[in-house]
């Protein structure tokens, strides 16, 4: 778990003074060096591995065996990249990712934006753990949305694909209202501070030339802050990986696959193994 890559800050906000933060209980400092490159230092002064990708600085307490996952759309010309900014949530980092993968709560938590009653049915969709990439994928997810994006005018049926390329990161591909045929990319990068506390860094790569940047940020922060109050009240606080505590329905297939995948990788930071 220490060998995974984790987001630890926005690259655009770094300075020479550095930012003190925490990764899995260990204090770290994220800063710029004299050449303008990002550095991450552990509390004991050890230089930690660094990547700068997708607007964020990434690091690891251990020795990552895998390169940071790819998001090919991040190199596609014409997209606008949106640094949404950090939000701290008193919940398990895994709960934050799982909530991001859920569609069924849209009409009740994101009322009149991502969903609305009586359009509450989650149609059948496909979920798989892709062997080659070793990622969780949900495809052919469809949902009626009153205002799917800042660039949407009125209600549309939106198509989604969800991807979990790393235990605390998820990438969402979603119908792009101004450009049918392309996908908008919305990500949730989660920095685990403790097993029940995390900093969440949403980021987006959108085709939208019209909407001012502040509107795009506000839209995504609105959505995420509606989730925050729910996340902070989930019980148990840690994500149960064994059955017995929570009963999934068919709409929760992505969550079931995510939990199974975490368990297969023995990724238990923020998880609860035996139902209590």
């Amino acid at each position: 778990m220490r060998d995974e890559w984790y987001p630890v800050g926005l690259f655009s906000q770094l300075d020479r003074n550095g930012r003190n933060t925490v990764l899995m209980g260990e204090p770290i400092t994220v800063a710029l060096d004299a050449e303008g490159a990002a550095t991450v230092t552990s509390g004991s002064g050890r230089a930690l591995p660094v990547r700068v990708r997708y607007g964020h600085v990434w690091s690891s307490l251990g020795n990552p065996r895998k390169e940071l996952f790819a998001i090919p759309e991040a190199d596609q010309p014409g997209r606008r990249f949106v640094d949404v900014g950090v939000v701290r949530v008193r919940c398990s980092p895994l709960r934050a990712v799982e909530n991001f993968l859920d569609i069924a709560h849209f009409p009740f938590v994101h009322t009149d934006i991502l969903g609305a009653e009586p359009h509450t049915e989650v149609e059948e969709y496909k979920v798989e753990i892709r062997k080659d990439e070793d990622e969780v994928w949900a495809t052919q997810v469809k949902f009626y949305q009153p205002q799917a994006a800042k660039s949407a005018n009125g209600g549309i049926t939106t198509e989604y694909m969800y991807r979990v390329p790393a235990p605390t990161c998820s990438v969402l591909y979603k119908t792009c209202p101004p450009r049918p045929g392309e996908w908008d990319v919305i990500t949730l990068f989660v920095q685990p501070l403790a097993e029940d506390l995390c900093d969440v860094w949403p980021w987006m790569a959108l085709f939208d030339d019209a909407t001012p940047m502040a509107d795009l940020i506000h839209f995504q922060q609105t959505i995420f802050l509606q989730d925050r109050s729910i996340l902070e009240n989930q019980i148990p606080r840690l994500l149960p990986l064994d059955p017995g505590m929570e009963i999934p329905t068919r709409a929760d297939l992505t969550s079931v696959a995510y939990r199974r995948w975490l368990k297969r990788h023995n990724y238990t930071y923020g998880a609860q193994l035996v139902a209590q």
């Binding site: 949404v84 900014g85 940047m213 502040a214 940020i217």
Partner: peptide, 10 residues
């Protein structure tokens, strides 16, 4: 008129 208060400190 939306203001980028966080993270932009506009």
């Amino acid at each position: 008129r939306p203001v980028d208060f966080h993270p932009g400190a506009e």
